[in-house]
């Protein structure tokens, strides 16, 4: 039986889709059968980040409505074995995502995959609630910034009260913190909330820290999950995250500012 993991945050623009793509790709690279689903009905973007936008024929809503079979809508990644993408629809009909429909599709996916990664839309409206309702685990994507931390706290409350596990009194959804866009040099200057502060406030276990990195934008330009770029610090951090998630012991990195040597600093100035 596959496990359902939701990537959620409340706030938009913190890196849910980037993280969903990287995390799902990383799991598949470790040999886990993985599917990543876009829950952002009307604002489809995961396909673009995964680089499969021109291969979308049928989508999640088509499957829910019975217009297509699941196998017709699933897009197999060309770079990574074991990885599939289920794109969402561009429809403006927000009611297209029904609870029964989502449940049916997820049940079918649980039989075929080890991990089902749900890329949640921002907000706490229908799409976001649907994405987290059936979750077994949740990755809370948070930036070290006041509005993001507040919204993460809010979404933790929603997970604890409005998920299926909460409603049915089952074991609660397992929560993980993923701190993204972390800039250790600004933390050192006292300009950015530090990891310890965010952990103290949200009080959930840390899955990983993704450093602020220019390579994230470059990867999205190319439609490539950033984890596929081995030179990228963010990519390396996601690789650590996946390993840690699967039970490996990996120390947290990228928490200290990079120290440049004199020569590097001179080059940096002139560059």
């Amino acid at each position: 039986m596959g496990k359902v993991i939701v990537m959620t945050s409340g706030k938009g623009g913190v890196g849910k889709t980037t993280s969903s793509a990287a995390f799902a790709a990383g799991l598949a690279m470790k040999g886990q059968r993985t599917v990543v689903i876009d829950f952002d009905v009307g604002l489809r973007n995961l396909d673009l980040i995964m680089g499969c936008e021109r291969r979308v024929v049928f989508d999640f809503i088509n499957v829910i409505n019975g217009d297509a079979r699941l196998s017709q809508a699933l897009i197999k990644d060309k770079r990574i074995e074991n990885l599939s993408v289920l794109p969402t629809s561009q429809t403006r009909d927000k009611d297209a995502l029904t609870r029964d429909g989502v449940e049916k599709v997820l049940d079918e996916l649980r039989d075929q995959f080890d991990y089902i990664v749900c890329d949640s839309p921002a907000g706490i409206e229908r799409g976001a609630l649907m994405a987290l309702y059936f979750a077994d685990e949740a990755v809370i994507v948070t930036n070290p910034e006041v509005s993001s931390v507040r919204d993460s706290d809010r979404i933790l409350g929603v997970l604890g009260s409005r998920s299926r596990r909460a409603e049915q009194g089952l074991e609660p959804v397992k929560e993980h913190l993923l701190l993204t866009r972390y800039d250790p040099s600004r933390v050192e200057k006292g300009e950015m909330l530090k990891l310890e502060d965010v952990l103290e406030i949200l009080a959930i276990p840390l899955l990983g820290i993704i450093p602020e990195s220019e390579t994230v934008l470059k990867a999205s330009n190319l439609g490539m999950p950033v984890i596929l770029d081995p030179t990228s610090k963010a990519g390396q951090a996601y690789t650590d995250v996946v390993g840690r998630y699967l039970g490996e012991t990996i120390e947290h990195r990228f928490m200290q500012p990079e120290r440049r040597g004199l020569f590097q600093r001179l080059l940096w100035r002139t560059a």
Binding site: K189, G190, E191, L193, D197, E200, I201
Partner: peptide, 11 residues
């Protein structure tokens, strides 16, 4: 530092 202020306001 502004980060300290941020933490206190959030708490």
């Amino acid at each position: 530092p502004s980060a300290t202020e941020a933490k206190e306001r959030l708490q």
